[in-house]
């Protein structure tokens, strides 16, 4: 177990800069999720920590030791790849024991470690199978087993669930999280799925365009997104980000509708952010015209038009209504997010 520090990390491929000076501090035993859209540099950062990519500038330290020039095998880390990267010509047992075999471990210890990991992951019955004979979820577990047997200081996961179907993904999500809590190993996990990030992380690092937009606990990011990007990225369905300006009567949207402002709202607010789940149906609310009603069972998502602006609301009530019908909605004023012209969060 160890801390991981990334200080001012730079990465360029030729003249293209991928990472523009990234800082991340990861505490011992923490589960950190790097999340962001495709091409934001999250996988590159993970591979730099693993040692599979060299570091163009800055510094990466594992357990206080700067590893910039340490080869991957000496960094004491284990990585689970997106495609699992299981050795197809080795059985599950051989796959898991491979690192120990290279390190010339005594066979008895190898077998013991493999059995221990197999027990944790429920792979006991599959040890003599080849990867070809396993399902996606089982392969995923073998990849984790290969990481576990090495007792690394840090686990790295590179989008490990993206090849699984939706149901299995949810299941493996909790399995990985449980396993991490059980082993207490520092873990860095890359994903583009913000729900994975929210449900698994101790700390989320939101990345965009080679920079960190915000880092913090999942709920802190949800409650107080630092800027428009994080506000739009975290949360599902996504937050309504409505451009407009502050007027004495309230917040005038570009589409013409008027939304109430919380007391003491800063006058320079340029974007009004409200999460769909923080809107409610109210007799005295703002009038909207229904565009689409999507019931999910537990709630109903309604896409509606306020003036010319399209807004999504998620309601506990079972909203009935055909497109074109009107309804009245009210944002919860204590949960309104206001953003300045530069996209940064305004204090309220």
């Amino acid at each position: 177990m160890a801390t991981v520090s990334v200080r001012q990390a730079l990465k360029s491929f030729g003249t293209t800069r991928i990472l523009h000076g990234v800082d991340v501090e990861i505490a011992d035993g923490e589960f950190v999720v790097l999340v962001g859209p495709s091409g934001c540099g999250k996988s590159t950062l993970l591979r730099m920590i693993a040692g599979l990519e060299n570091i163009s500038g800055g510094e990466i330290a594992i357990d206080g030791r700067v590893v910039n020039n340490v080869p991957p095998k000496d960094r004491d880390i284990a990585m689970v790849f997106q495609n699992y990267a299981l050795y197809p010509h080795m059985t599950v047992r051989q796959n898991m024991a491979f690192s120990m075999k290279l390190a010339k471990a005594p066979p008895a210890i190898m077998e013991e470690e493999v059995q221990r990991a197999a027990k944790i992951l429920g792979l006991d019955a599959l040890l003599d199978r080849y990867p070809r004979q396993l399902s996606g979820g089982q392969r995923q577990r073998v990849a984790m087993g290969r990481a576990i047997v090495r007792h690394p200081q840090v686990f790295l996961f590179d989008e490990p669930l993206s090849n699984l179907d939706a149901k299995l993904r949810v299941q493996m999500r909790s399995e990985i999280r449980e396993l991490q809590q059980r082993l207490g190993t520092t873990t860095i996990y890359v994903t583009h799925d913000q729900i994975e990030a929210m449900t698994m992380a101790d700390q989320i690092v939101v990345m965009n365009g080679g920079r960190i937009e915000q880092a913090g606990a999942p709920l802190a990011l949800y409650d107080k997104p630092a800027n428009l990007f994080v506000a739009g990225f975290i949360g599902s369905p996504a937050m309504n980000l409505l451009p407009g300006k502050v007027t004495p009567e309230g917040f005038r949207l570009e589409g013409g509708a008027l939304l109430p402002l919380p007391p003491g709202a800063p006058a320079n607010a340029a974007t009004y952010g409200i999460r769909p789940e923080h809107m409610s149906l109210a007799e005295d609310g703002v009038e909207g015209i229904i565009v689409l009603v999507e019931p999910t069972g537990s709630e109903t998502q309604v896409t509606m038009r306020l003036g010319e602006t399209v807004v999504t609301g998620a309601f506990r009530e079972r909203v009935q209504g055909r497109p074109g019908a009107t309804l009245r909605v009210m944002p919860d004023l204590s949960l309104v997010h206001l953003f300045g012209p530069d996209g940064g969060r305004l204090p309220s």
Binding site: G51, L52, M79, Q82, A85, R146
Partner: peptide
């Protein structure tokens, strides 16, 4: 041969 196999082997200490 997928490059990720070599990367995995690299991390495994080969």
């Amino acid at each position: 041969i997928p490059p990720s196999l070599y990367e995995a082997a690299l991390l495994d200490g080969a």
